[in-house]
Design a protein around this nucleic acid. Sequence first.
DNA 1: CAAGGTTCAGAAACCGGTTTCGGCAACCCT
DNA 2: AGGGTTGCCGAAACCGGTTTCTGAACCTTG
Lengths: 358, 358
Amino acid sequence: MAATLLEQRDSSSPARVRLIDVARAVGLTKGTVSRALNDHPDIAETTRLRVRRTAQRLGYRPLAHAQAIRTGRVRSIGLVLQINEHDGHRPFLADFLAGVSQAASGEDWTMTVATAATEADTLRLLSTLWEDRKADGFILPRTYVEDARITTLRDMRVPFVLYGRTGDDTGCAWFDIDSEAAMAEAVSRLRALGHDRIGFVPGGEGPMYARLRWQGFCEGMAREGLPVDPGLVGLPALDRAAGAAATRGLLARDDAPTAVIFAVDQAALGAYDVARDRGLRIGRDLSVVSYDGIPEGALMDPPLSTWAVDTRAAGARLADMLIARARGTPPEDLRALGHATFLSRGSEGPAPGRADAP
Amino acid sequence: MAATLLEQRDSSSPARVRLIDVARAVGLTKGTVSRALNDHPDIAETTRLRVRRTAQRLGYRPLAHAQAIRTGRVRSIGLVLQINEHDGHRPFLADFLAGVSQAASGEDWTMTVATAATEADTLRLLSTLWEDRKADGFILPRTYVEDARITTLRDMRVPFVLYGRTGDDTGCAWFDIDSEAAMAEAVSRLRALGHDRIGFVPGGEGPMYARLRWQGFCEGMAREGLPVDPGLVGLPALDRAAGAAATRGLLARDDAPTAVIFAVDQAALGAYDVARDRGLRIGRDLSVVSYDGIPEGALMDPPLSTWAVDTRAAGARLADMLIARARGTPPEDLRALGHATFLSRGSEGPAPGRADAP
DNA sequence: CAAGGTTCAGAAACCGGTTTCGGCAACCCT
DNA sequence: AGGGTTGCCGAAACCGGTTTCTGAACCTTG
C-alpha cells in the first residue's frame, strides 16, 4: 500500500518502469541489470543483449536524477548567457539553442539555461550550477582574450567547451568559425573589385573574435600586397552609433578609403547613416562588407553584404563536443574550426573611377 | 577510504556539506533536520531555528536531484520553444529567458530549455521532460485558440502557465498582455488624428493573440462610433511579404483607408515596401500603427510606431506563477493581465487633407 | 493521581538507481 | 587430479536526501 506521490495508478499515469521491473522481467537482480545497461565488462554478452532487449521492450528509461545521486551526473548541458547592454547575440540565440537542444536530445541530455547581468553574476551562476550538479559541463559563448569563466572552470576541473577561442587555450576544448579567413577573403574580394584603399573598423580589444577578425584583415591585406595604413583603421565599434563615428573618421581623410570592412554587422549599419547624411551611395560610392549575418542587414538599402554563420550547426557541434568532454575525451582532441558563408547582397561594388563607374 | 567520484578532497573541492553534516553539528538525526528545514509541524520552533541557523552557517544547500528521488521535484522550470518557419519571438527570446531565469534563481529554481521543430516534437518533448522529471512544470509561450499542449498537459495533470490566453482556459493559469486595450487605443489615437477610415491587418485565426488584437480593434472602432467595414479588413499577415500584400489589397479600394493598424510588427514592415513602391510617405500619406515592438521597427524610415511589451518582466512574472502553481496554488488564482506601452515614433500622423497636410 | 492526549525527536525504511564485494562454476594449466 | 584463474552474477552497501513509524516525556483533565 505504498503511496508514491500524488498520482499513483491514476489511470492517467501508467506507473513508470523502474530498473527493478526490468530485473524481474528478465530474471536477474537489479545490480546486474544496471551493470548490463552500463556496459560493465563483467556481464556476459548474451546477458547484456537479453537485458537490453527487455529494457527496450518495457520502455525503460532511467531517471537522470536517480542516477545522479550516485554518479553525480545528470546528463545536462549548462549554458549561462550574459545579457547586458549591447546584447550582440540576440538574433542568433534561438538558432543556437535549437542546435544545442537538438544535439543534446539525441544523446538523451537536456539543457539548463541561466542568464546573468554581469561577469560576477556569470561566475557565481557557473559555480552554483556546477556545485548543485544542475549541469555536467558548460558551453561558453562569446569568449574573450582573457576570460574569467575559463580560469574559474579550469580551476574547478569542470568540463566546458568554448564557442570561440581565447588567449591561452591550454586545457580548453573549443569550436569556432574561421573568421580570419572570412576577413582575409573580404579583402581579396574588394581588391578584385578594384579597391586599393580598404579601411577596417575593428571590434575592440576584449572579445577574442574581434582580435581574430583584425588579424584576418591584416593577413588579407598582406596577401594582396597592400600595406595596413594606420589611417585606414577606424575606431573600434560594436554598435551602430560607434560604427557611424568610425566611418566619419575614415571618410574625413584626404585619401579616404573606397571600401570599409567592419568587424561586426551592427557597426556596419552606422555606415549607412553616414552615407545617407552625405549623399553617398553604399555599394557604389562606398563599399561595405561586414561579418555576422544579422537579419537587420537584409533590410538595409542596399542590403548589407556580410559573412553569415550557421549558428544552429555550431550549437549542435558544441553540444556534441561538450558531451564527449564530460565523458572523458581530452580537450586537446576537441577543437575544430567551421567556416562562414559570404552573402553578397549589394553593399559592395567596383571602386569608384574604375570599370563601370562613370 | 570511500572514493567518491573523480575528485574527492582535491584541495580544490572543499567537500560538499550534506544533511548529515548539519545533523551532526546540531546534534540531531538527519531525519529531524530534514523535517526542520522543510517546516514540518512536528518540530519544535526552537529546534527549527537552531537547525536553520546551523545549516545557514555551514552553507548547506540540498542537492535538488537527491531530493527529487523521493519527492519527484527537481525545482526546475521547463520551457519548450517551437522554432519554426516564421520564428516570431526571436528578438524577445533573450529578454524572456532573462526574466524567467532571474525569477527562478530567486527561488533557487533553474530553467530547462528545449526546442522543437514541429507541434508533434513539442508534445513529445513536454511529455518526456515531465516523465523524466527534468522539469516540475512548464511555461507555454505563444498560445493558440486551440492548443494541443494545453490539453495534453491538463490531461497529465502537469503544472503549467500560459504566456497568453486560450479558447477554453479551464484549469489554466496564465499571464498575458492586454493587447485588446492597446489595439483599441490605437484606433482612438488615429481617430484623434482625424482618420475615419482605419484599416486593420489581422494576424490569422490560430494564435490567440491574433484573435484578441482583432477584438481590440473592433472594440476601439465601436467606441469611436466607426463601423467595421469588411473592406477595411485586410488579409491575415504575419510576415513582411504578407503584410505588403495585405496593404496592397487595402489600398486598391476607392475608399482606401488613410491609416492601417497591423496586428504584428513584422507585417507592418510590408507597408513600408508598398509605400516606397508607390511614392507614399508613411506617417503622412499613410499612417501605420502596429504591435510587438520589434527592434527592426526602429530602423525603418520613419521609425514604426508600435506597442512594446516588457518581455523580461513577463518572463519573471510567469516564472513566479509557475512556481506557485507547482507548489499547489490553484490555477484560477494565477491569472493576470499586463499592459503594453505605446512607442510613438513617427509612422502615424494627421489624416491627409486635414490639419497641417496641404 | 491515574488515564489519556500532545509534543517532539529518534530509528529505520524508502526512493531508484550504482558500485563493491564475494562466491560459485567452469575452465586452464601443469 | 588438484590448485589457480577467469567469467559471471547475486547480495548488500551506498548515494543524499524524505517520510513513516514509534515511543518517551510532558501536559491535561476528571
